[in-house]
Design a protein around this nucleic acid. Structure first.
Lengths: 152, 152
DNA sequence: CTTGAAAAGAACTGCCT
DNA sequence: AGGCAGTTCTTTTCAAG
């Protein structure tokens, strides 16, 4: 874990709100010069606090209007089973995220599809044929809100 | 839904892999000039296919090593109940995402905390006191893999 | 930390094919 | 659509206080 001062946290909060602003614009808000701000941002990248930047795409405009969350229980849960499952699931392009979890289910997948019948195809041909799959629970995404989350 | 040609899809695939690359670097890979590439990227922003860029922070390095997914059923489900719930949940800083879903649960929350006892505090003081909360299911995140998802 | 400056590169504009 | 040339802005790295 990395020690951050108050200025670093304000920088992170600003960048989470708008990732595209320049070091000089950022410095103006914080009362810092452009080089000082730039060095701090670079340090946040170098220490790994900032892992990078992700494109935020509109999946609906790309023709993928359906997102479904799947909770999956494995029938067998040895180390090999987990590795096999993860390797197989990584080959499915419709899977947007794979979360290994501890609780009622073993994995949570976020799957996107063009429509419900396209989702049925993915479910039957891709998901249900994954190695070791047991119970599957599905929840269809209606709407979502992303929030910045705590910084410090 | 928006019509994209093959070049646009290659641009999106490149940008999903690395959101920070410049228009000239992108153009070199595609055999396009810098202005031509830039105009295409701008058009992807203007049409809303690219919604923006998000900072990808390392929550562990920020001291928030615990992520938990909560499935929540509401006891009462009128329109007012949903609005009340969403408004109240938006005021909790530890909540990273709020997903309104259709299925076994009504909402799925992603909650981050410093450790398990910190998570217990959030759960008891913040989550369980939300208006209309019925059943709650919890899954602790062990590891996750994000994948690009389908473009076209 | 600051200011100032300089060089490189990226973003943006207008014009022409 | 795409390319070329040019302008403006940001990034990145200095030196000096």
């Amino acid at each position: 874990m990395i020690e951050l001062d108050d200025v670093d946290r304000r920088i992170l909060r600003e960048l989470v709100a708008d990732a595209t602003q320049s070091a000089s614009a950022l410095g103006r808000k914080l009362g810092l010069s452009q080089p000082a701000t730039w060095r701090r941002v670079k340090r946040l990248y170098d220490t790994g606090v900032i892992k990078g930047q992700r494109m935020d795409l509109d999946r609906e405009k790309l023709g993928f209007g359906v997102s479904v969350f799947l909770g999956i229980k494995l029938a067998t849960k040895g180390r090999v089973s987990l590795d096999d499952f993860e390797r197989a699931v990584s080959a499915i392009p419709e899977v947007q995220s794979v979360e290994h979890i501890l609780g009622v289910y073993d994995y949570r997948l976020r799957v996107v599809a063009r429509d419900i019948s396209d989702f049925e195809r993915v479910l039957r041909r891709r998901i249900m044929t994954l190695p070791g799959v047991g119970d599957v629970e599905a929840n269809v995404l209606l709407s979502e809100e992303r929030r910045p989350g705590p910084i410090g």
